[in-house]
Every structure is written in structure tokens, then in C-alpha cells.
Design a protein around this nucleic acid. Sequence first.
DNA 1: CGACTTGTTGATGTACATCAAGGTACGTGG
DNA 2: CCACGTACCTTGATGTACATCAACAAGTCG
Lengths: 252, 252
Amino acid sequence: MLTATCPAPARQVPCEKCPLRAYPTLRDFSQEELDFIAGFKSGELTVEAGNTLVMQGTTNAHLYTVLSGWAFRHKTLADGRRQILNFALPADFIGLQGTVLGEMQHSVEALSDMVLCVFPREKLWELYRNHPSLAFDLTWIASREEQMLDEHLVSVGRRTALERIAFVLLHLYLRAEQVNLTSKNTAQFPFTQQHLADALGMSLVHTNKTLRRLLASKAVRWKNRIFEMIDRDALVALAGYQMNDLAPRPFI
Amino acid sequence: MLTATCPAPARQVPCEKCPLRAYPTLRDFSQEELDFIAGFKSGELTVEAGNTLVMQGTTNAHLYTVLSGWAFRHKTLADGRRQILNFALPADFIGLQGTVLGEMQHSVEALSDMVLCVFPREKLWELYRNHPSLAFDLTWIASREEQMLDEHLVSVGRRTALERIAFVLLHLYLRAEQVNLTSKNTAQFPFTQQHLADALGMSLVHTNKTLRRLLASKAVRWKNRIFEMIDRDALVALAGYQMNDLAPRPFI
DNA sequence: CGACTTGTTGATGTACATCAAGGTACGTGG
DNA sequence: CCACGTACCTTGATGTACATCAACAAGTCG
């Protein structure tokens, strides 16, 4: 639960060889953009599973890109009720969601061990000033994030418990797929049923019962953190999914 | 329910005299910025209450700033279930929420008669290229919008029915206040209980019962579209509000 | 030293009783 | 006619309680 404090890692990946560049969903950068990003990057951060990367109520001078691992963004009320707002996977950007400067209104916690690329917030203005194409990408990213929030809000507000579970599992599987975290219709999911419950606005018990119902449908399997997609179309139907493909495009 | 189609209005307000500039919450623009915005603006749009400004599933070549009136952004599922995502008041920006280009994933409907300032989407790139300060403002706006969504998601996911109602009424009252739409602790609210229900993920009947409970507390009055704030602190307490002041800053 | 037992912890599974929320129906009032 | 108000019954969701299961650490004994 402590805020992550980590020494500078031994070796860092140069931006030209950034593993994220391999993803087909991300756009190519010009050499000039790459040079700027290399200067923008201030280092890498390693965070262990369960640690808090960003703490609600504090200021955070950094922006991050997830290089590997999963995290979740959440808000906690005074009496402990928790709402998970979104999940962060490799290639996702963390830090734009709060006020551009100022106190964070949410926390971010690592679900698995993570490596993040770190950028200083104060250089953001320089990016806007000299690299409009990257600024545009940031807007694109923010807009994609907002679309996911919209869809999430529809789930929590209007979908049935079964639809919610089906939807979020489908959603996370598709996102994992986009960053090559699936193979043979299988993905490692680092979260627990409690996380799902907190994301979907349901109790743990009801989440478990509903999940059992979903698993009984044989559309998916999920055991020991291993998720397996058996019948994609069936899951899509259960989720009431309207294929919006929210493919990511740029990153920084 | 039809998409708004309106002839060009007779007289338009020049940007130098934009009524929004009076709001203390909005930052000042340089003359150069003003000149660009005047060129960016392609016209004004008048929409009658109840009409749809942006339709889910269609593309929309425009961005809007609300000059006057209220609207709400929502998504509708195939079977008619509807989730209201957010409300738009004067000075709010509409259009960034979807993909920057592409099909809209949500609809926007006018709650009252509105006047909007219209910008062509294709000039957005020019804005990023030549006016980084305005681009930065857009990011700020997107970030504020996301914070509101976060808070909304917490409401729907984790707050009790009474807290939800109290919270949304407080939230909307504060936003109205920021754009001088209140006087003597009173605001004109153009929405119905059905809108609240769809925003809060509750049924109409339950919304009504809960609202009755809230009104019984004497913290607020709400009758015939007139909302009156009687005891602000009491409402804040009922809402479990953690004062985050989400003051707007820039606009375009 | 290694194999087996024990204890602990966190995640999961399930059974109640209880309660909050939904749905239908039928009022009112402007 | 539409928004609001309220009663009634039904259903979905919660909370508590307790059982299971795997992972892991410590301790015990051959």
C-alpha cells in the first residue's frame, strides 16, 4: 500500500528499441519525434504488484507509459468503499486523467509487477509547443480513455450483473489481445474477483455468483488467474456488446 | 429526436464580445488567440429543447462550445436502456469525447433551447500546429471532463441512492453557479426525474421515492423545474462530497 | 538432509436472511 | 398529455457466516 519508491534501474531501453513500438496498433514515429521522446523520458520505474503508483490526494510530478504489467485506477471514499475506474495495460498512458497539474483525485495501484516509462510533467508544455503531432496523440489517447469510461458507466448504470461481468471480461481480453498478451485464446489475468466487484459496482458475493453463472454457460473458462476464451460470439452476445472497436493508435 | 438542422442564424456574436468571456472561471486570451478562434469558428447553431445535436453511430464534422442552454450526453443500448454520461452547460465543450475523427459512440440531446458556437473538426489540426496554448487548454478540458466521469462512476457504482441524488443535484447546482445560472440560491433545472434516473442508473420510481426522502430533509427544494439550495452544508454531508472543486479554467 | 505435518493467509464457493431496487398499476395536477 | 407521486408485490443485490482450496512458511521427525 505504500507509494512506490524505487532506485533507478540498471539498464534502460532506448526509445528506438522501445518494446511498445512492435505493436501494430501503435503508429510510427518520425526520427524527430523519437529524438524528442528520448529527451522527454526521464527514466524507468519498477513497481511491485500491490504497490501504489499514484495516490489520491497527493500531487504527482510524473506521467507514465506502461511498458509491462497491469494496474488499475480507482477512487476510494472516506468509509472505504472503492470504485475501480479503469485498468492500465502495456502501452497505456497514466497521468493525463487527473488535473494536468494539481492534486490527483484518484489512485493507481499495480496489479502485477510493472515497468513504466517516466516523463516529467513540467516538460509537457514543451511537447505541446514543439511537437503538435504528439500533442494531438495525447488528445487522441484522452479521448479513447473517455470512451472506455463511457462504456464502463453504461455497464455499471444500466447493464445486468451478468452482462457486466461478460462485458468487462471481454473488454479486458480484447485489450490484452491488442498488446500480444494472449496466446491460444488464453490470457493471464492478474486481478481477483474482488477487483471485478469493485470495478462493476457489485458486492464480492454477488460477483462470485454471477461469475459462476457465466462460467456455467461454457463461453469462457477462468481458473487460477488463467482466462480462456472458449466461445467468443457467445460472450459477445452475453455482454450485449456493440462492436465499437476501441483500438489504440498512438502512444508516447 | 431528429438531428438538429438549422439555418445560419441572423446575427452572430463576434468572439471579442463572446458572452462566455465574462465568466471569471475562464482564462483570458491573447489577441492572437482571439484572432485564431474567430477564424476557427464557422458559425452558430440554435437547437430546440429535445432535439438531438449529436447522434450515436453517425459521424459529426463539428465541435461545439455551448453558449447558452443545457444538454446531456448519453448512450442507448439496443433494447432502449439509456445511460446519461454527463451534462453540458454554457462554456462546456462538446465533441472531444468521441474519437477525434470517426463515428460518435454517444448522443447529445438538448435539454433546453440552446445556442452553440460551431467549429469544423478538420481545422483542429491547425489549432494544434499553430496554437499550442489552445491545444493545451483542450487537454485541460478533456481532463476535467474525465474527472467528472470518474466522480459519476463512483456515484453509480458505490454511492447509495440517496447519496447519488444529493451528489448529482449538488454537482449540477455548483456547475450552474460557475456560469452565473443561479441567483438567490436558486437555479432553473431543465431536466426531469427521468433524466436523473438515467444518469444515476436507477429506475424512475426509485428515483422519485429517494428524491422525496431528500426533499424531506429540507436541505433543498425542487419544484416546477426550480431548484433551491436551502442548506448547502447539509446537502454536502448527504452527498458524502469530498470537495474537489472542479473549477473550469480555459475554454475555446 | 529431505519428507511429512501443521498452521496461516488470501482467494474462492455457497447458504441463508434481509433489504434495496425494480415493475406495474393507478393516482394527481398543471 | 406529460411529469410527478405513491402503493403493492416481486426480484435482484447485500451481508454475514462458514466451508473449501491452493500457496507458502515453519516446524517435526525419520
